[in-house]
Design a protein around this nucleic acid. Sequence first.
RNA 1: GGGGGCUUAGCUCAGCGGGAGAGCAUCCGCUUUGCAAGCGGAGGGUCUGGGGUUCGAAUCCCCAAGCCUCCA
Length: 987
Amino acid sequence: MTAPSPTLTTAEIREKFLSFFESKGHLRLPSASTISPDPTTLFTVAGMQPFKAQFMGAPARFEQGANKRVTTAQKCLRVGDIENVGRTLRHCSLLEMLGNFSFGDYFKRESLTWAWEFLTDPEWMGLDGSKLYATIYEDDEEAYDIWTKEIGLPADHVLRFGADENFWPADAPKEGPNGPCGPCSEIFYDRGPKYGDDTWAEYADTRESARFLEIWNNVFPQYDRQEPGADGTPTLIDLPFKNIDTGMGLERIATVVQDVYDFYSNDVFGPIVARVAELSGHAYEGPQNVSHRVVAEHVRSVSMVIADGSTPGNTGSGYVIRKILRRASRHAYLLGLREPTLYRLVPLVVESMGDAYPELRTEQARVEAMIKSEEERFLKTLEGGIQRVNQSISALIFRKIADPEINEATEEFKNDLYGSGTNTHTIQYYYNTSSEDWRLLNKILDGRLENLLTNFEEQDIKRREIEGGIRFMHFDSQMSPQMEVKPVNREAPMLLSGEEAFILYDTYGFPVDLTKEIAEEYGVSVDEAGYAESLENAQNIARAGSKYGKSELFGAQEALEDLPQTQFVGYDDLEADGKVLALMVGGERIEHLSAGDEATVVLSQTPFYAEGGGEVGDTGRLEWEGGAGMVRDTRKTPGGVFLHDVAVESGELKPGQSVRGVVSGERHATQRHHTATHLLHAALRAVLGSGVRQAGSLVAPDRLRFDFSHGAAMTVDEIADVERLVSRWVSANFPVTWQEMPIAEARAAGATALFGEKYGDTVRVVRVGGDVSYEGQAVASMELCGGAHVSRTGDIGAFVLLSDENVAAGVRRIEALAGEAATEWLRERLQQMARVSAMLNTNPDGLEGRVAGLQIQVKAAEKEMVAVRRQLAEAQMGGGSGAASPVRELGGFKVASLKLSGIEGNELRGAADKLLDQSEADIVVIAGDKGLVVKATKDAVARGAHAGQLVGKLAAAGGGKGGGRPDMAQAGITDAGAALLALDTAF
RNA sequence: GGGGGCUUAGCUCAGCGGGAGAGCAUCCGCUUUGCAAGCGGAGGGUCUGGGGUUCGAAUCCCCAAGCCUCCA
């Protein structure tokens, strides 16, 4: 046997696989998108996933033709154990599955013998057959015989495993789910003793080996699992047709064929890893090489998913992309890369995979731009987080080294400043506000702070962080009035609380492993148990918040499994007759409805549009012989059964009865909004560029909402341009037509399809029968769409954009109105403007000038009032001589008091300052008509004066309340005379 | 869909119930002058918007907007 050829590249292996199976009569299909159209999974996770329908018995017809045998290289995204990617040498988030599938055509014999042929024939992989091993399901004698008798594999190369390993889905016989399932047979390759000295027999126990690498799984879905009997015995009945579903991991076979140690040394990852090393200056070696792998692997998967049309965001698949991207960005950061770097690796991905996945090439610019902007955003987040981490950590360090000192120091300090009796709050206030005091404090602490400072890197943020630390510490001790600080054990390890670490992560997006990393540099560790606990709490809250809402439809689907698809006739007719096929309440089928009941009704044929494609479900009425009901909403199951939510008003309803459905007139408004949505979409792409991609849509009778990917808020001009474009379509009054056609034809004609949307082989295309021009270019609207539309664009009537807002990073949301809703809105705006104009004695044209003038006037008037009040106060104070306010001796203080009228707020305080300055007094009291201000000199405060307490007593006498600091306080009063009189008894 | 956080001078932010602040930037002056800089001063604010609580709100509560972030 020949040695594995080291010259085969990953691309060559992929190509060989596909052409091998083409030579065996298979149809080669392109990979489906990584973004799954199946609502139950976010991403495509297996090669067979795009063929679920065919495995269930749907006809094997595809865009490229009909064939019961197909072969694909399917890109799959598996994010379940993403934290292992990079830590191990074999986990990948993106992997390519080479698969051959049979829909009721060939079975086990062909599957296994072809696999053998492909792996061992020198024309294909040319692997040494004696190094191949297989596992089978415990009692699958058919597979055993094929392996040993037909292929000639020695019996000791075959192991039998139970349903946990060799059944698909795993453990299906006992655990379910119901549906197609079957045994499987896995093929292994012995990579030789240099990867381990274990034996194949030992693999039966260990089930983990670097030497014996699983490369190919052949699944034989031959059973249909039924609900187990009462005794719990699983029931597996033979499927009428037996399928073949195989998957070979391209990364795995490439590792074997290229005989390299791990995935990251193959021809796809190797160059990326090398480039990471080059850019970061860190060679691919040592424990740090985890980061190289994470970066290389994640860049590949993120590039692919973005090329498939997803955008990083904070919901659904977008959120997963963001998580992967951030994990990569974080590891780039750990390698010392402080500038966006990942996007510079994209060309390497495109180079090695762009031929097999052309979307990588066509979308390259968008992929790079998106990754770059996401990296920039994340680096900003990291910077902010680092500041906060440093602050928390400095608080810990500070407490450890300086606690006893600061306690003594502040006593001394306090005496220095205010004498005794100063409270914590004052000290804290003091530290925070004065940098001079900071220096003094540092001096008292014997330069210790400066030493601490030099431990931090960034000069200009250091002090703020340490100050933050002090503040932090004071908050802790603030409950004790005399600054008692908890005793410190200098030997105890410093521990950052788990809650703190979680807040950093949850609120500021700062990854906990970075927190740990930074903390360790300062000898601080993180309480991981506490962190885990906080995380779990938060998750429970999130789950509880969003658990209702979807179970009902799934329940309905099961209860209605036997029903045919509903005939929908509502594109043209808003009234139609149908037969009642089923009645349902709370997921249970019932046989009878009477007046007052609310239930779900299924009809054979209906004019009611079911919620879908963003368009809301129709409302209206059901009428029948002797009764009637209101249709409140219409939805449909994934299987195409329409569900009418009906409230019966009169009469009785039973299955089999004939009813007439009448759709509400609101449907016309909905149709206007739907066609307008298409025009809006086309206009946005024309005005903002083809980067615009629909990200969500709501079409209702009263409004439309359209989410799309776009980096920035729209400018006023752009909004106007979009509106103008739509209006041009409307006034041209083009016909709107729709027709069904094969999807290939629709795509060839250039119809806009949505990413992640599932389309059958025939699709409905809605086309506006005319172009409008924008900047010399013809703009057309043609979309795949199942919704209801107007028949001419003129039916839309007025169109107005209400708002452009941000719903997630990179996603904008537009709300707009069409038809009467738009005219109503415009009329209301105009009336409003007319009212405002009238209030200002001007007309709409003069409105702006008028308001600007008023603003200036108000500002000038305010300034003038301040000046006037100040003058008034000075005049009443006797021209600043202090003559109007004799100083009295009260309680050991020199007190000056004064009553001013027509003065308040700021000027009252200003007057108090002036008086304190000009008179001999230690304490001044100024009373206005409604307010009272007391100020005391530093010296008086040190001797025990307290403006806050004094003002309280005076205010009580003056019919009010108040308070403040020892040196400054104010109050609101109603009787200034009484307040001043109370001075005599206040001390 | 559900949480958390932020929004204060041109920029970065502190203040979190009692006089709107710092650093940087800008302008002016002084000093020095090879440059960097140093010293002093000034201008610059609807404290995101709107309600409420309070004698008093940038600060507390409610609503809204924008931005950041975590989860489902």
